[in-house]
Amino acid sequence: MLRSNLTRTILSLAVVAVVVAALFVVQHRSGGSSITEARLERSLPTTFSHLYLQQADLLGRTGLTMKSLDARADCDKGGPTVANSGPGADWICLMTWNDPDVPLPDGSGKFELNVHSNDCYTAGGPSKLVGLVTIVDRRGREVPNPVFEFDGCFDPNGDDTPTGVTIVPPPVTAPTSADAR
């Protein structure tokens, strides 16, 4: 019994040591997250475009394609002081796309993302541009709006080179604290 207790103690100590060591390694490794700005900027426009086309289909609109939409995103996490990597509900992506019938008055649309540590995210679109939670389809039925809120996942080992997309945010939404510097 004593022997069994001893081995158990040693075993649990070893486990704790391994965990602490691992935590230590992680703390001293910079940017270890698979969630990055570049991966989100590649994933979000694709997911959005697919769903936007489904919305167009529901509304009975034609003539839009993935290529003609040409959606692009510029993502940022938690403002200028926070590094743009890692999970969190504070990711903001500004997105542009070409729909002749829906112009973007601000030049872009603001999407709020909750990015989870498992490389999946939930994105909410601006209802002024993408519509409300439900839409009325071409047959007059009330159906869920595919782009109001949607999920997506990306490859944690996918292309991580910067996309080079820069979208200037509309001046009206600039908060007063931005001038605090």
């Binding site: 691992a22 498992n118 999946c120």
Partner: peptide, 22 residues
Amino acid sequence: GSLGGIEALRPLLLTTPFEAWH
């Protein structure tokens, strides 16, 4: 596995493979 900042531990966890189907 759901915590931020210690994602380097995720590959070691036994719950991560349950999400590999994504």
